[in-house]
């Protein structure tokens, strides 16, 4: 390792921390939150976070089962090859996001209006 390597690590870590700070500040803790589900850029469903439910999103790309429980959203099962969405931790803050790239599915936590 040369000195420049440490500099690169410090610079990238600093940028990451700043970016993290910005996302935390913008994600204000609104009480009325909804989980907005889009498939292939089109809105599919919007669910209020304060009601526990389980929905299955089945599209031409595949199906994901989404669970809303105790104010947070989680994908509990999916038939995509990588299962990244299932391993993603539950979303509950505004700005939190769960993505399933193979199924073009995005779940975002948004402020209800």
């Amino acid at each position: 390792m040369k000195k420049g390597d440490n500099l690169i690590i410090i610079i990238v870590a600093a940028v990451a921390l700043i970016a993290l700070g910005i996302t935390l500040i913008t994600a204000s803790d609104a009480n009325n939150k909804v989980a907005s589900i889009t498939v292939d850029q089109r809105p599919y469903m919007t669910l209020p976070l304060n009601r526990d439910t389980t929905v299955t999103v089945s599209t031409q790309y595949g199906s994901n089962t989404i669970e809303l429980k105790d104010g947070s959203v989680k994908v509990i099962s999916a038939d995509c090859p990588d299962k990244i969405c299932v391993h993603t931790k539950a979303a509950y803050k505004v700005g939190d996001i769960i993505v399933c790239l193979p199924h073009r599915l995005i779940i975002t936590i948004e402020k209800a209006d």
Partner: peptide, 23 residues
């Protein structure tokens, strides 16, 4: 590329994690 394909900028909130993981 994901922002382009999915047509949303909301996933930009993943940036800090992608940077840390890159290190």
């Amino acid at each position: 590329a994901a922002i382009f394909v999915l047509g949303t900028v909301s996933i930009v909130t993943l940036t800090p994690w992608l940077l840390f993981l890159g290190i």
